[in-house]
Amino acid sequence: MIAYKYRSGRGQKDAQGNDIFERDINMLAKDTIYVPTVAQLNDPTEALVDDRIFEMQLELFKKLGAKDSINMVRERYIEFYEGIIRDSGIYSLSKKIDNELMWAYYASGHSGYAIIFDTDVLARSFENGKWGGMYEIDVNYSKKLPKFDISRLRRENDVTVALSCLVGNKSEAWEHENEHRLVFDKGGKSLTIDYRAIKGFVFGCRMKDEDIDYVMKLFSGRDLDYYKIVLKDNTYKLLLQELKDRYPDADKYCPNKVEYDIEKLIEWDRYSDGVGYKYRPFVEAAMSEVSKEPFLTGISHFVVTDDGKYPHILIWAKVDQDGYVRPMKSFEYDIINGKLVRK
């Protein structure tokens, strides 16, 4: 899914006196996003629920003689709400790019920009990370507070049931945001993302040309899409106008390239009775591609099999993201009609 992150234009300062535009865009150029906690968001009613039904249910079960169990459930709820929800991280995106209120509120009165994200790639950035769970939630908008009852805590393997109630609801006054959330167990920190999650930028209709150029130059070599908001004549409607990349001949962006010894890897494969040597050109091409993947620190080994429909290459690589060494990641390719095809 494609979603958008609206950001401020030049001129606004943060609490430390830094220009927010330069701070944010330079952080993003390093493939990093900041995930605030629930308490840091601009809506004071975040995570507010009506839990009266929950309390009535507990009292009923207590009268039925389940006092000890009920105390445990209440403690679990308090721990979940106060100890987890308030500290959880929310990365907010919008599914709409043509809402004038979003441009006015979150993009400095149309002088800022919006980042175009592929949410599938963005979410995969956090697989097996040290951040605990990461969940995707579409926000529901209502006139009334969501009702929290005991059933929200009973489904052990589906945390989203409780999360969607606690951090997936907002007042109808916010409905224009059309929000899609990435919810983390912990917030208030910066996280590295897969650079391929960034698909492009949409610039506000009042964004200065020199700031547009600043962004394009900073993100040159990434094959991104660029647009600018324009006003449709004689209407309130906002339209997207495609812009040409001003740096089309820039070197291809590559944030990471791990070193590896192809001779040793081939030798190890032959020692293990592998058949990789028979497909060496394809192995080398696959290795070269894998070596540029984000978060990798090294290529461990590979296996080639040719007893199926197509010869198959499996490469194992070491991963270190934000200081956390993850389990090895695998990359798979088939050799089909003389071409390398990634699976």
Rank of each mutant, 00 (worst) to 15 (best):
L60T: 11
L64Y: 15
L64G: 12
G65N: 10
A66K: 14
I70T: 15
M72R: 15
M72G: 09
R74G: 03
E75R: 07
Y77G: 02
E79T: 05
F80Y: 04
F80M: 04
Y81W: 04
E82P: 01
I84P: 01
R86N: 02
D87T: 06
S88G: 09
I90K: 09
I90E: 09
S92V: 12
S94N: 03
K95F: 01
I97K: 07
I97S: 11
I97N: 07
D98L: 15
N99L: 07
E100L: 12
M102W: 02
W103L: 04
W103E: 02
W103N: 03
A104Q: 10
Y113C: 04
I115W: 00
I115Y: 00
D118W: 06
D118V: 09
T119Y: 08
A123C: 08
A123R: 11
R124I: 01
E127S: 12
K130N: 14
W131Y: 15
W131T: 10
G132P: 02
G132R: 07
G132C: 10
G133K: 05
G133E: 07
G133T: 06
Y135P: 02
I137C: 10
D138R: 12
S142Y: 08
K143W: 11
K147I: 14
F148C: 06
F148K: 01
S151P: 00
R154K: 10
R154E: 10
R154T: 08
R154S: 11
R154L: 12
E156P: 00
E156A: 13
